[in-house]
Nucleic acid binder design. Structure first.
Lengths: 158, 158
DNA sequence: CTAAGTGCAAAGAATTTGCAAAACG
DNA sequence: CGTTTTGCAAATTCTTTGCACTTAG
């Protein structure tokens, strides 16, 4: 069967090679923000006949087609995530201790940035917002040392 | 005499070499967001005995000391700007047509992002906001092609 | 078939680093 | 004087590309 990203590729009229299908599948399954190296690793697990050059070429292509979005969270390498199914833009909060990324959307914020751009004499084309934060001290909740654990992604709208 | 950045370096106990003094001066004069290549160019104009490796090392050092801030506006290279004298954070609007950068600050925005982080269970450590926009159609104002020149920074607070 | 995609290894671009010489404090 | 810093060139890291070979449509 056909992964979500593969379907989008077909819609855009892209030639579907074996390697593209695998990369599309890996991307469809990802709910994080892998870099090219990581995509290559995941794809290779599925099919060893994929070179990293092809991964680079494919993500670039899919980005041009609007199927993927490139992110830069620092650390030198570009990271990718599928463009949201909903068209609502979302942003990222990076936990400075664990490096984990939480996504959120906020309509007040969308409104505000649009207004700011306008005040400066510009039409807003796009924008990006990244928050860097530290998990808030919990009021009462006993546990030992708190290593890396899974954060709960959620919306932040009123 | 001593440039602003040089003074900050001394305060931080950094050894002031000739090349650091020049780089500090160049940074003190800059009111834009030069990349390393550009800093090297400006510094070389003042003193030819500076290598680009030293500029890279210096900029990294000053960033660690909190004297400089690294920015990434896309385009592959890191850009730098002195940490603001006031502690108010400011952000950037990048003109997608000309590449020009306009700075702005907005207290509503600061409040909002703090609230968003809190709602997600985090204390906000820092954040960055970048707007990409296109100059709004002016009612009437003729001009030819507009190459890279200095944009007019301004505040956007109510 | 034939234009488009792939692998490989080499090329690029940005940044870092090892080492001997030079300079700050 | 002993660190620290610098220059230079070589090394790293991430990404792109040229070219001969495959393949989807």
């Amino acid at each position: 069967m056909e992964s979500r990203i593969e379907r989008l590729c077909v819609e855009k009229g892209l030639k579907m090679t074996g390697q593209r299908r695998v990369i599309a599948l890996v991307l469809s399954e990802a709910d994080d923000h892998p870099d090219v190296e990581e995509l290559y690793r995941r794809a290779s697990r599925r099919d060893a006949h994929i070179s990293i050059a092809t991964v680079y070429r494919t993500v670039r292509l899919l980005e041009e087609k609007g199927i993927l979005e490139k992110r830069d969270f620092g650390g030198g390498r570009a990271r990718y995530e599928p463009t949201g199914e909903d068209h609502a833009s979302h942003h990222h909060l990076i936990d400075v201790d664990s490096g984990k990324v939480v996504e959120f959307a906020n309509s007040d914020h969308e409104r505000l940035v649009r207004a700011i751009a306008e005040r400066l004499g510009f039409d807003l084309v796009s924008h990006r917002l990244e928050l860097f934060g530290r998990r808030r001290e919990q009021p009462r909740r006993d546990r030992g040392a708190l290593p890396d654990s899974e954060p709960a992604p959620l919306g932040a709208n009123p």
